[in-house]
Nucleic acid binder design. Structure first.
Lengths: 161, 161
DNA sequence: TATTGTTATACTCTATAACTATA
DNA sequence: TATAGTTATAGAGTATAACAATA
């Protein structure tokens, strides 16, 4: 009832999923869905290491890479790539624009859609992040041999369709 | 400015991550992290199919299975298994208790911790869900052969540590 | 009529922090 | 002092809905 002090919030700490010894995981150990989740969390930690200090989350990274590789892409298409609603792509684009990473340019043919483009700053950031994220992704997956890594990628893509 | 009507919210629709044809995915195609994310979303759709009509999310499913297989487990341990904070395990347990799926029982030795147990209802639900979720998990992964599925599980577990 | 972007709003999930009771 | 549970609060992320401009 007495007023509490505001809680400072540090959001980007997805805790690793601990494997509790002695616990029975039952059917979970047979589910691809569960194994995927655990592996994804583990690899998120790699991403987090690579982007430490930046405010770049996985969806933001994906968005920047895709805009960089596909200049002029519309917000709606970007939303489809990320699997989020138009309004979310909008919020995301606002966030990039406020930080001068992406800019909206009117499209000649279509007065409705914007074309998204990296700024010079944005291109620079993407170039650096692509290197560090890829390197960290490989480092985290170093428990796998090169052939295993390739095979895992193949199987995941086959599964994702 | 004019007041808007409240938006009814149907949360559990993680959209599939569309593979936009003709788009350049650049470095994303070489990242395990990205491939894992796409595969995980695909498999979440299997989970969603299996639990349609129930209000059971993946963390809730995991929690119920683990409580079922480890009767008397504490809320804190459950939180560790799920990778969430104590307060989250608390909210989760409240949710289960309100629906008579799980009950808290005092532990004889320790006056602080609760022991969690499935109710008869809860045990029934878990029994059914284990079957349907496992079946749907296999159906979704049917693009993979049996050997590929085993290999994928092995690689994922190796990666997750 | 359909699509793009926009604004307003709502809800889930989960974090931090401070507190109480017990060990 | 340390741990389990609890309560209060905050914030990120993303959904739906309604709207305007354009096609």
């Amino acid at each position: 009832m007495t007023p509490k002090r505001p809680a400072p919030y540090r959001p980007r700490t997805l805790a690793p999923i601990e494997r509790v010894t002695g616990l029975d995981y039952d059917v979970l150990d047979d589910l691809l869905g569960y194994a995927l989740r655990r592996a994804q969390v583990a690899m998120f930690l790699a991403f987090d290491t690579a982007t430490r200090g930046l405010e770049i989350t996985p969806p933001r990274f994906t968005a920047l890479v895709v805009v960089g590789a596909n200049p002029g892409i519309s917000q709606s298409t970007l939303g489809n790539v990320l699997g989020i609603a138009r309004s979310g792509a909008m919020t995301l684009t606002d966030w990039f624009e406020a930080r001068r990473l992406v800019e909206r340019r009117r499209r000649p043919g279509d007065g409705r859609a914007w074309g998204l483009h990296l700024t010079a700053n944005g291109a620079d950031l993407v170039r650096k992040m692509k290197r560090t994220v890829a390197a960290e992704d490989r480092r985290r997956a170093a428990v796998l041999g090169a052939a295993e890594r390739r095979e895992l990628l193949r199987l995941l893509n086959k599964l994702a369709g």
